[in-house]
Design a protein around this nucleic acid. Sequence first.
DNA 1: GCGACAG
DNA 2: ATCTTGTCGC
Length: 252
Amino acid sequence: MKGHCRFSASKAVKAQLLLRGKVKLESLNIDPRTALGLDASYSERGGVGIGAAVLTSLETLEPVDCKIYISRVCVPYIPGLLAFRELAVMAPAASPLSPKADVVMVDGHGIAHPRRFGIASHVGVILERPSIGVAKRKLTGRLVEEAGVRYVVQNGEKLAVVVGEPPRGVYVSPGHMITLEEAASVAKAAVKPGGWMPEPTRLADRISRAVKTIVKGQTLISYSHTSLCSARLGPGVEDLERPLLKAGIEVE
DNA sequence: GCGACAG
DNA sequence: ATCTTGTCGC
Protein backbone atom coordinates (compact mmCIF):
# COMPACT_ATOMS: atom_id res chain seq x y z
CA MET A 1 0.00 0.00 0.00
CA LYS A 2 1.12 3.48 -0.80
CA GLY A 3 1.74 5.56 2.33
CA HIS A 4 -0.22 8.71 2.81
CA CYS A 5 1.45 11.93 1.87
CA ARG A 6 0.57 14.99 3.86
CA PHE A 7 1.94 18.23 2.53
CA SER A 8 0.63 21.69 3.20
CA ALA A 9 1.86 24.36 0.83
CA SER A 10 0.76 27.15 3.15
CA LYS A 11 2.68 25.63 6.06
CA ALA A 12 5.72 25.17 3.83
CA VAL A 13 5.59 28.86 2.96
CA LYS A 14 5.40 29.74 6.64
CA ALA A 15 8.43 27.55 7.30
CA GLN A 16 10.33 29.43 4.61
CA LEU A 17 9.41 32.79 6.08
CA LEU A 18 10.63 31.58 9.46
CA LEU A 19 13.86 29.98 8.26
CA ARG A 20 14.88 32.78 5.92
CA GLY A 21 15.76 34.86 8.95
CA LYS A 22 18.75 32.54 9.44
CA VAL A 23 20.30 33.41 6.08
CA LYS A 24 23.51 35.41 6.27
CA LEU A 25 25.10 36.78 3.12
CA GLU A 26 28.47 37.74 4.59
CA SER A 27 31.75 37.11 2.81
CA LEU A 28 33.09 33.57 2.51
CA ASN A 29 36.55 34.98 3.33
CA ILE A 30 38.45 32.01 1.93
CA ASP A 31 39.35 30.56 -1.43
CA PRO A 32 37.21 27.45 -1.53
CA ARG A 33 39.14 24.33 -2.56
CA THR A 34 36.23 21.90 -2.51
CA ALA A 35 32.55 22.11 -3.40
CA LEU A 36 29.77 19.65 -2.65
CA GLY A 37 27.49 19.36 -5.68
CA LEU A 38 23.88 18.39 -4.97
CA ASP A 39 21.12 17.16 -7.27
CA ALA A 40 18.19 14.75 -7.34
CA SER A 41 16.60 12.48 -9.91
CA TYR A 42 13.31 10.61 -9.76
CA SER A 43 11.83 7.40 -10.95
CA GLU A 44 8.38 8.89 -11.03
CA ARG A 45 6.37 5.75 -11.66
CA GLY A 46 7.90 4.15 -8.59
CA GLY A 47 7.71 7.35 -6.60
CA VAL A 48 11.39 7.00 -5.78
CA GLY A 49 13.87 9.85 -5.40
CA ILE A 50 17.65 9.63 -5.75
CA GLY A 51 19.73 12.29 -4.01
CA ALA A 52 23.38 12.66 -4.98
CA ALA A 53 26.16 14.58 -3.25
CA VAL A 54 29.48 14.81 -5.06
CA LEU A 55 32.51 16.27 -3.32
CA THR A 56 34.46 17.99 -6.07
CA SER A 57 37.93 19.52 -6.11
CA LEU A 58 37.79 23.10 -7.35
CA GLU A 59 41.46 22.81 -8.29
CA THR A 60 41.12 19.84 -10.65
CA LEU A 61 37.33 19.93 -11.11
CA GLU A 62 37.37 16.18 -10.53
CA PRO A 63 35.08 14.27 -8.13
CA VAL A 64 36.77 12.98 -4.98
CA ASP A 65 33.89 11.41 -3.03
CA CYS A 66 30.20 10.70 -3.47
CA LYS A 67 27.15 9.74 -1.44
CA ILE A 68 23.77 8.60 -2.70
CA TYR A 69 20.51 8.43 -0.74
CA ILE A 70 17.46 6.71 -2.18
CA SER A 71 13.96 6.85 -0.72
CA ARG A 72 10.30 6.99 -1.60
CA VAL A 73 9.08 10.50 -2.29
CA CYS A 74 5.57 11.89 -2.19
CA VAL A 75 5.87 15.67 -2.02
CA PRO A 76 4.86 17.28 -5.33
CA TYR A 77 6.88 19.86 -7.17
CA ILE A 78 5.43 23.32 -6.64
CA PRO A 79 7.32 26.34 -7.99
CA GLY A 80 8.80 28.13 -5.00
CA LEU A 81 8.59 25.02 -2.81
CA LEU A 82 11.14 22.83 -4.60
CA ALA A 83 13.19 22.29 -1.45
CA PHE A 84 10.39 20.39 0.28
CA ARG A 85 10.43 17.82 -2.50
CA GLU A 86 14.18 17.49 -2.99
CA LEU A 87 15.57 17.93 0.52
CA ALA A 88 14.16 14.59 1.66
CA VAL A 89 16.72 12.75 -0.47
CA MET A 90 19.30 15.50 -0.92
CA ALA A 91 20.01 16.30 2.74
CA PRO A 92 20.75 12.70 3.82
CA ALA A 93 23.13 12.37 0.87
CA ALA A 94 24.81 15.67 1.70
CA SER A 95 25.23 15.54 5.48
CA PRO A 96 28.12 13.06 5.69
CA LEU A 97 30.19 15.04 3.17
CA SER A 98 29.23 18.62 3.98
CA PRO A 99 31.84 19.04 6.77
CA LYS A 100 34.54 18.29 4.19
CA ALA A 101 33.29 20.89 1.71
CA ASP A 102 34.22 24.57 1.68
CA VAL A 103 30.98 25.36 -0.12
CA VAL A 104 27.82 23.53 -1.13
CA MET A 105 26.55 23.99 -4.71
CA VAL A 106 22.91 23.16 -5.33
CA ASP A 107 20.89 22.63 -8.51
CA GLY A 108 18.30 25.40 -8.04
CA HIS A 109 18.16 28.99 -6.79
CA GLY A 110 19.48 30.53 -3.59
CA ILE A 111 18.01 33.95 -2.79
CA ALA A 112 16.75 34.41 -6.36
CA HIS A 113 13.40 33.21 -5.05
CA PRO A 114 10.04 34.90 -4.38
CA ARG A 115 10.69 34.74 -0.63
CA ARG A 116 14.49 34.89 -0.90
CA PHE A 117 14.72 31.32 0.33
CA GLY A 118 15.32 28.92 -2.54
CA ILE A 119 16.63 25.39 -2.09
CA ALA A 120 20.27 26.49 -1.93
CA SER A 121 19.51 28.83 0.97
CA HIS A 122 17.47 26.11 2.66
CA VAL A 123 20.35 23.63 2.34
CA GLY A 124 22.88 26.17 3.57
CA VAL A 125 20.85 26.95 6.67
CA ILE A 126 20.12 23.27 7.42
CA LEU A 127 23.73 22.16 6.99
CA GLU A 128 25.15 25.40 8.38
CA ARG A 129 27.52 25.65 5.42
CA PRO A 130 28.18 28.30 2.78
CA SER A 131 25.97 27.54 -0.21
CA ILE A 132 25.47 28.62 -3.81
CA GLY A 133 22.42 28.18 -6.04
CA VAL A 134 22.97 27.23 -9.67
CA ALA A 135 19.76 27.19 -11.73
CA LYS A 136 19.19 26.61 -15.43
CA ARG A 137 16.08 28.79 -15.59
CA LYS A 138 14.87 31.92 -13.90
CA LEU A 139 12.19 31.67 -11.22
CA THR A 140 11.60 35.28 -10.30
CA GLY A 141 12.84 38.80 -11.06
CA ARG A 142 13.88 40.47 -14.29
CA LEU A 143 17.11 40.56 -16.24
CA VAL A 144 19.20 43.73 -16.11
CA GLU A 145 22.58 44.31 -17.68
CA GLU A 146 25.08 46.48 -15.88
CA ALA A 147 28.70 47.03 -16.92
CA GLY A 148 28.57 43.96 -19.15
CA VAL A 149 27.24 41.73 -16.38
CA ARG A 150 23.69 40.40 -16.46
CA TYR A 151 21.80 40.25 -13.19
CA VAL A 152 18.46 39.01 -11.99
CA VAL A 153 16.95 41.97 -10.17
CA GLN A 154 13.79 42.36 -8.11
CA ASN A 155 12.71 45.35 -6.06
CA GLY A 156 16.06 46.96 -6.77
CA GLU A 157 17.91 43.98 -5.27
CA LYS A 158 20.50 42.07 -7.27
CA LEU A 159 19.61 38.44 -6.67
CA ALA A 160 21.61 36.45 -9.22
CA VAL A 161 24.31 36.74 -11.84
CA VAL A 162 23.91 35.09 -15.23
CA VAL A 163 26.96 32.96 -16.03
CA GLY A 164 27.07 32.05 -19.71
CA GLU A 165 24.46 32.62 -22.36
CA PRO A 166 20.99 31.14 -21.63
CA PRO A 167 19.70 28.64 -22.44
CA ARG A 168 23.30 27.48 -22.31
CA GLY A 169 23.97 29.44 -19.16
CA VAL A 170 23.11 29.37 -15.49
CA TYR A 171 21.65 31.73 -12.91
CA VAL A 172 23.97 31.88 -9.91
CA SER A 173 22.72 33.22 -6.59
CA PRO A 174 24.07 33.11 -3.06
CA GLY A 175 22.38 30.63 -0.77
CA HIS A 176 23.97 31.23 2.63
CA MET A 177 27.21 32.58 4.14
CA ILE A 178 28.50 33.97 0.83
CA THR A 179 28.08 37.10 -1.28
CA LEU A 180 26.59 37.36 -4.77
CA GLU A 181 29.98 38.28 -6.22
CA GLU A 182 31.76 35.37 -4.53
CA ALA A 183 29.05 32.92 -5.56
CA ALA A 184 29.34 34.02 -9.19
CA SER A 185 33.13 33.84 -9.06
CA VAL A 186 33.19 30.32 -7.60
CA ALA A 187 30.55 29.03 -10.02
CA LYS A 188 32.28 30.54 -13.04
CA ALA A 189 35.62 29.04 -12.07
CA ALA A 190 33.96 25.62 -11.73
CA VAL A 191 32.82 25.54 -15.36
CA LYS A 192 35.14 23.45 -17.53
CA PRO A 193 36.34 24.86 -20.85
CA GLY A 194 33.64 24.15 -23.41
CA GLY A 195 31.16 23.35 -20.65
CA TRP A 196 28.33 25.47 -19.36
CA MET A 197 27.37 23.98 -16.02
CA PRO A 198 29.66 24.12 -12.99
CA GLU A 199 31.21 20.68 -12.42
CA PRO A 200 29.92 19.98 -8.89
CA THR A 201 26.24 20.17 -9.89
CA ARG A 202 26.87 18.68 -13.33
CA LEU A 203 28.51 15.63 -11.77
CA ALA A 204 25.72 15.27 -9.21
CA ASP A 205 23.21 15.39 -12.07
CA ARG A 206 25.03 12.75 -14.11
CA ILE A 207 25.50 10.40 -11.20
CA SER A 208 21.93 10.67 -9.92
CA ARG A 209 20.70 9.95 -13.45
CA ALA A 210 22.99 6.94 -13.76
CA VAL A 211 21.68 5.57 -10.48
CA LYS A 212 18.13 6.17 -11.68
CA THR A 213 18.65 3.65 -14.48
CA ILE A 214 19.49 1.06 -11.83
CA VAL A 215 16.40 1.99 -9.82
CA LYS A 216 14.33 1.42 -12.94
CA GLY A 217 15.71 -2.10 -13.18
CA GLN A 218 17.87 -1.36 -16.18
CA THR A 219 21.53 -2.19 -16.50
CA LEU A 220 24.03 0.55 -15.95
CA ILE A 221 26.32 0.14 -18.93
CA SER A 222 29.19 2.14 -17.51
CA TYR A 223 29.70 5.39 -15.74
CA SER A 224 33.17 5.78 -14.33
CA HIS A 225 32.28 8.06 -11.44
CA THR A 226 29.68 5.75 -9.88
CA SER A 227 32.50 3.64 -8.42
CA LEU A 228 33.27 6.60 -6.13
CA CYS A 229 29.78 6.39 -4.68
CA SER A 230 28.35 4.66 -1.68
CA ALA A 231 24.60 4.52 -1.20
CA ARG A 232 22.19 4.39 1.70
CA LEU A 233 18.59 3.23 1.32
CA GLY A 234 15.52 4.73 2.92
CA PRO A 235 12.34 2.86 3.88
CA GLY A 236 10.64 0.91 1.13
CA VAL A 237 13.54 0.56 -1.28
CA GLU A 238 15.54 -2.21 0.42
CA ASP A 239 15.12 -4.36 -2.69
CA LEU A 240 17.51 -2.03 -4.53
CA GLU A 241 20.53 -3.31 -2.58
CA ARG A 242 21.22 -6.18 -5.00
CA PRO A 243 21.10 -4.19 -8.25
CA LEU A 244 23.22 -1.42 -6.75
CA LEU A 245 25.89 -3.87 -5.59
CA LYS A 246 25.80 -5.55 -8.98
CA ALA A 247 26.44 -2.14 -10.57
CA GLY A 248 29.49 -1.68 -8.37
CA ILE A 249 27.92 0.78 -5.95
CA GLU A 250 28.62 0.10 -2.30
CA VAL A 251 25.57 -0.02 -0.02
CA GLU A 252 26.07 0.95 3.62
C1' DG B 1 -8.37 37.89 -14.91
C1' DC B 2 -3.48 37.25 -16.92
C1' DG B 3 1.22 35.82 -17.14
C1' DA B 4 5.03 33.33 -14.91
C1' DC B 5 6.36 29.30 -13.03
C1' DA B 6 13.85 26.43 -10.01
C1' DG B 7 13.31 20.89 -10.52
C1' DA C 1 12.15 16.77 -12.99
C1' DT C 2 10.01 12.55 -16.08
C1' DC C 3 8.05 10.21 -20.38
C1' DT C 4 9.40 9.07 -25.04
C1' DT C 5 10.60 8.22 -31.18
C1' DG C 6 12.54 9.80 -34.32
C1' DT C 7 15.46 13.32 -35.99
C1' DC C 8 19.04 16.86 -36.66
C1' DG C 9 23.89 18.32 -36.01
C1' DC C 10 28.95 18.01 -34.73
